[in-house]
């Protein structure tokens, strides 16, 4: 084994992994290059676009700006972990589909992860909450409108469900 490598244990989408990595490896590189989870995308490499957003211990973070070493012992959820293994989409994914909330789809995984984390954190987010919490996710195709509608739809459904 390369002596400069270190071993980390991380749970990704519920599966435990033990991987040996160079310390300079980012979480994004770990996911894409080591674990083959290419759903998480790289688009800016300077912490500005949010395409690489994943959830670490319930928090949305940008995987390009977190060292893989720093998620040692933590739980990571990526876009591959949102739907059930037998092919059922999450409520949010369904809403994205129904509302045509994506176009080229390159930033969609990041948006899904940000909004999934927000919907976990906030029971009943306002329009302002939603827009504010989605500021970390750049999109060039959609103009954001249908994507915000999809999130609002989930909030609405949740409210109705709790009544």
């Amino acid at each position: 084994m390369d002596s400069s490598k270190k071993t980390i244990n991380v749970k990704v989408n519920g599966e435990p992994y033990e991987v040996s990595i160079k310390p300079k490896m980012t979480l994004l590189q770990l996911l894409r290059n080591e674990l083959g989870l290419t759903g998480t995308k790289q688009a800016c490499m300077d912490n500005s676009c949010g395409a690489c957003t994943v959830i670490v211990n319930k928090m949305a973070v940008k995987a390009c700006s977190v060292l893989a070493m720093q998620v040692n012992g933590k739980e990571v959820t990526t876009v591959e972990g949102l739907a059930s293994k037998d092919g059922k989409l999450s409520i949010l994914q369904e809403a994205f589909l129904e509302h045509s909330a994506f176009q080229c789809g390159f930033c969609s995984p990041g948006k899904l992860m940000s909004s999934t984390a927000m919907l976990e954190e906030l029971e009943n987010p306002t329009e302002e909450d939603i827009r504010r919490d989605m500021e970390g996710n750049l999109c060039r195709c959609t103009g954001y409108v249908q994507y915000l509608e999809a999130i609002k739809e989930v909030v609405r459904q949740r409210k109705e469900g709790s009544k």
């Binding site: 989870l37 759903g39 998480t40 739907a83 989409l89 045509s100 994506f102 969609s108």
Partner: peptide, 17 residues
């Protein structure tokens, strides 16, 4: 709903990268 939706929303859509 778009036919490319499920692939794009689950991270399975293959981009060049």
């Amino acid at each position: 709903p778009r036919v490319d939706g499920k692939a794009k929303l689950t991270g399975r859509a293959k981009f060049t990268t």
